[in-house]
Design a binder for these strands. Structure first.
Lengths: 203, 203
DNA sequence: CCAAAACGTTATCTTAAGATAAGAAATTAG
DNA sequence: CTAATTTCTTATCTTAAGATAACGTTTTGG
């Protein structure tokens, strides 16, 4: 996929939130930067400010925390999804997490500096505020669901939900990442899977 | 607290996000409605669309789910905080939760209809988009933290965090609501509290 | 192609959480 | 003021999760 094809895809994805006319699009694209991450390279690192948002063109990334030396997955972003350490991006505080490429990954980036420039550019300001609102609202809904899942469901139920809504996660991610995405250990997920496979085998 | 004092407080709270000039404020306030909830009355009910956002002037409300007949608290909103079943408000889908007054509560409401009217009113559109963006971003950060707490911390650690950040929650909320806010049962929270009180008493 | 690393499962042991019930204490309502 | 309700704790029992280690299997990288 070449750069212009990537841009077309990006533009289409943005239309979920907001539609740019040609003049706006030209200015908007001037504020984008392109980058690639080799597998295992980092997009964000704990302790450093994450000063950009990225759109995944190809590949995938994983958002995770390290606690007591243990790596705990928060979520994944695949093609045509956004990724950032949002709190760090929004507040300018150091990130509390890592974001790492799971495969070779191509990104379109919007730095906070460029975003602020667009928010202050009369040509784009209104549309960018709107984009920001709709995108933040969209992700807010995702988080609302995710918190509801943690307080109302057992790990087993969360796994079954993941099975039924069947995101790419299940195909493309190692089990142990899925495990702590669900809030449990890999060993525990393995046991849940066994329980589910042989529900009759009781004694 | 009379109605105009409430409005002043509300205006001040909004300034965390956006500042209105007098002309804007006059139009904005025309889109507000006022209501009161007696203790135990509902602001939102599962299965019904929640078509408004509210600002708590006095009192407090609780956001909760009912699963298998059991009531599970998601969060609380106190004075000068917003509350809504956001996903329902934003998507127009029926709410999956309840919101109930914990005490007699006074609210300032913005209906979705009024919000849309403001978003379409040239005088306010830009500012309301911006308000919406900043507010959604703010709550997004709260949720990001909350999910991180679920995947990286034990229930005991979450309780200790709540103790140290010491929100009003601890003083004003019954223990069993706090328990499932933390993702555990009331019985379990009671045990955690006992463990913490007598850490030496091992045998 | 081979050695090393990563992955998933399984087993054991320990610890803690859920379910349930009961009872004391506090709060609320008539 | 008293009865009813709510709240919190405690106890018991069951179930499941965490920690750790071991062992095949697969994948990866040199």
């Amino acid at each position: 996929m070449d750069s212009s094809t990537a841009l077309i895809t990006f533009r289409k994805s943005l239309e979920k939130f907001v539609t740019f006319n040609e003049a706006e699009w030209i200015v908007f694209t001037q504020h984008l930067t392109y980058s690639t991450l080799k597998k295992k390279q980092y997009f964000a690192v704990e302790g450093k400010v994450c000063d950009k948002i990225a759109f995944v063109v190809t590949g995938s990334v994983r958002y995770f925390h390290i606690k007591d030396g243990v790596d705990i997955t928060g979520y994944f972003s695949f093609e045509n999804e956004f990724v950032s350490s949002y709190k760090s991006y929004l507040t300018g505080m150091p990130a509390l997490n890592y974001i790492q490429a799971l495969e070779d990954t191509r990104l379109i980036n919007i730095s906070k500096k460029d975003m602020d420039a667009m928010l202050n550019n009369p040509l784009l300001a209104y549309k960018m505020e709107r984009f920001g609102r709709l995108a933040a609202e969209y992700y807010l809904c995702c988080y609302e669901d995710r918190v509801a899942a943690f307080i109302t469901q057992t790990p087993e139920e969360r796994y079954l939900d993941l099975l039924s809504t069947g995101r790419e996660i299940l195909q493309r991610m190692p089990q142990h990442y899925i495990a702590n995405f669900l809030g449990i250990t890999p060993v525990s997920l393995s046991r849940i899977r066994r329980r589910l496979m042989a529900p009759s085998k009781s004694a």
